[in-house]
Design a protein around this nucleic acid. Structure first.
Lengths: 245, 245
DNA sequence: CCAAAAGTGTTTTTTTTACACCCATGG
DNA sequence: CCATGGGTGTAAAAAAAACACTTTTGG
């Protein structure tokens, strides 16, 4: 809620000030492996550990604006439309930063392929690392990253976010690889194709265009992201009911 | 992210302080109508308008703790387990409060039936109002409330949140009414019943218990919320493809 | 006996799955 | 001509939808 009190007048001392930051879980799929953009910490606490990129909100920025700015600084991307960026949740446990009270708004960003980040300025150099590879991250970033992965996995079912992992023009094989990578499941190609094409507004064909993938095989038709944001019907993840633990 | 900088040392002036609050979208279903818990504002800005309940974070509180405390204060409930409470998203546009910079973490709370709120202390009296009935709310609360409604509607499909609208023991008819109210759609009773019972962990029967609903008709068997948090398979909302706008 | 609400059964339709098969390309 | 990846067809199985019908209660 905006500033408000229940005792009558407006009281400037009714609140405590907090530092507000954004954290970014930036994901991409590279050769069938999920990668995360991480920064190595240069000072205590957690010096030498990997951390999610992020930074403070400037006085007149919304969290969304700050997240997009940080993303541009960290990756060196000057994208016009910009990558897919979405709020994940806010982490506010006292003690999540030992130095001070910090409330952090976490975002998930999805990027096509993996342009190696060019340090865009004063920012510490960020690097793509395979998801799960770097040991424990700094602060509560393991938790944030796990939440981001869960959320993206769930969103693939009913939102058209998978195309955010793909370049502007992509093949259905590439789209399928996104699903298989994030879900860590193999999918039946004919059935995947049919579902995607039946889900209207998900993808639209680029007439006549085709591209060879992997150097061999029949060139694949190209598609662009459609206008839909939600998938009707959804593309449900295969159930893992009778599966070995 | 926790406090961090890119320029070397730790700089206490690298950030601006913000006021951090929580806002609550508290929902219940009463007689087949969705109701929201609202507070009438007693001072400027937006004096006399309805607003979502909420308040400031205390220095050593997480947003979740603050939300639960505010909910208890506002409703007078002293629930042990407490109602279903879940983070919605964070609203941080500069200018959302004309007086100062306020970042607000919004929550959705779901309650069974509608205990009329008893003012639990110094809090302004809160009231249940039908969803959509009160004109424009204060600040950006219309947006927050709409987001909450969207989210809950979507969650009914793949999460077991519907039981949070029901008392500890409920009939399948009551559960169905939750779906019908939030989705604003009629559902086929036999099919609904089958789906709910097939979704394992959603509900479990209370052996031998039954209750008369509406004074007439066959007494309905009672159920409790199951242990599942996600629904397998999901209970998909009927598609509105060929529907009149 | 009637109305109302719960609960069961069954047929039809649609969707999903599994898998066989054909196509186009590079080496 | 074979390996590789793209693309189509189809029959069997499963799931969803539609709707008739039975049960149990209060009046």
């Amino acid at each position: 809620m905006p500033a408000q009190d229940r005792t009558g007048g407006y009281d400037r001392h009714a609140y405590e000030p907090f530092a507000v930051t954004v954290d970014l879980a930036v994901l991409t799929v590279r050769d069938g492996v999920l990668h995360v953009l991480l920064v190595e910490r240069g000072q205590e606490p957690h010096i030498g550990r990997w951390a999610l990129p992020g930074g403070f909100l400037l006085p007149h920025e919304s969290a969304e604006t700050a997240a997009r700015r940080e993303l541009a600084e960290e990756t060196g991307l000057a994208d016009v439309a910009g990558p897919h960026l979405e709020q994940l949740r806010t982490y506010s446990d006292p003690g999540r930063d030992p130095r001070m009270r910090v409330v952090s708004v976490a975002f998930t960003a999805l990027l096509p392929d993996a342009p190696e980040p060019r340090g865009g300025g004063d920012a510490a150099q960020a690097r793509w690392l395979p998801y799960g590879a770097p040991g424990p991250l700094a602060f509560d970033h393991d938790r944030i990253l796990a939440d981001a992965h869960d959320r993206v996995g769930a969103q693939l079912e009913y939102r058209s976010v998978a195309t955010a992992f793909c370049p502007p023009e992509f093949t259905l094989g590439e789209l399928q690889q996104v699903y298989e990578t994030v879900w860590d499941t193999a999918l039946d190609r004919p059935n995947f194709r049919r579902k995607v094409l039946a889900t209207h507004g998900f993808v639209e064909p680029v007439p006549g265009a085709a591209r060879l993938t992997g150097g061999r095989g029949k060139p694949a038709a190209l598609y662009r992201a459609g206008t839909a944001t939600t998938l009707h019907p959804p593309l449900l993840r295969p159930s893992r009911e009778g599966r070995p633990a």
